[in-house]
Simulated assay, not measured.
Amino acid sequence: MSVLTTKEIMEIIPHRQPFLLIDTIEELEPGKRAVGRKCVSYNEPFFAGHFPQEPVMPGVLILEALAQVGAVAILSCEDFKGKTAYFGAVNSAKFKRKVVPGDVLTLELEIVKQKGPIGVGSAKAYVDGKAAVIAELTFAIG
């Protein structure tokens, strides 16, 4: 059972279709961590051009989905409600496997450092329990 539905996610972060890249939040510790889920459908608009003969979810969009999960975690804190989380940096990113239509992405982000409105998150995306992306992301609250 989900902790937050798509509608509840949209009450926390400003992203909307087609750029809202998470479907549900499965676990949430405000200000600390969140686990989200994205069901990757063949109907995603980016598959028309990436790649028509072999659809693959762009790695930058997996990073964005991870950042959105992190934004839900940090913006669920009372101090940051109603604000926006922006990318500050992609400190590192490793792409371990392709994500294709039919995959269910499990997206985890743990906030490992924070000083005021700036923080760093340790991010992991999985498909069937296997790592697809491992990254460290910096965010800024504005």
Rank of each mutant, 00 (worst) to 15 (best):
V72C: 15
A140N: 02
I13E: 02
L107C: 05
G116W: 05
P117F: 08
K98V: 02
C77M: 15
A93G: 11
A71I: 13
V127C: 07
V112P: 09
L105I: 13
L61K: 02
G59M: 05
V127K: 03
A34F: 10
E11H: 05
T24G: 01
D128I: 10
G59N: 12
S76D: 10
G119Y: 04
V72R: 10
I25A: 01
G129E: 15
E78Y: 13
G70Y: 13
A85I: 10
A71S: 13
M10C: 12
P58Y: 08
L21A: 00
Y126C: 09
S2I: 13
L21E: 01
I25Y: 01
K98W: 01
T24D: 01
V133P: 07
R37S: 05
K81W: 12
F80K: 10
G70C: 06
N91K: 07
G119K: 09
V40W: 11
A135W: 02
T5P: 11
D23R: 12
I12Y: 03
L109C: 08
F47C: 08
H15G: 02
L66P: 13
V112C: 03
F80G: 12
L66G: 12
A34H: 04
E29Y: 04
A125Q: 11
A132P: 02
K38L: 06
R16V: 01
K38P: 10
L4I: 15
R37Y: 03
A123P: 13
E26C: 01
A65F: 10
A140R: 07
F47T: 12
N43H: 08
K130C: 11
K83R: 10
L109K: 05
S92L: 07
S76H: 14
S76T: 15
T106W: 11
P30Q: 12
P45V: 14
K94S: 03
E27R: 08
K124C: 14
N91W: 05
L105S: 04
S2C: 10
T84I: 15
A93C: 14
G119V: 01
D23S: 03
F139A: 00
S41M: 14
M1S: 15
T5L: 12
G88T: 09
E110M: 07
G129Y: 14
D23T: 06
I22V: 09
E108Q: 12
V104E: 08
G70K: 15
A123T: 11
V112D: 06
F47V: 06
T106P: 07
G59E: 12
T84S: 00
K124H: 15
P18N: 09
L109W: 07
S92G: 04
G116H: 11
L63Q: 07
V3F: 04
A85E: 05
L137P: 00
K115Y: 06
Q68S: 13
K38V: 10
Q53A: 08
E27K: 04
D23M: 11
K81Q: 15
V99L: 02
E26Q: 08
E136S: 02
C39W: 11
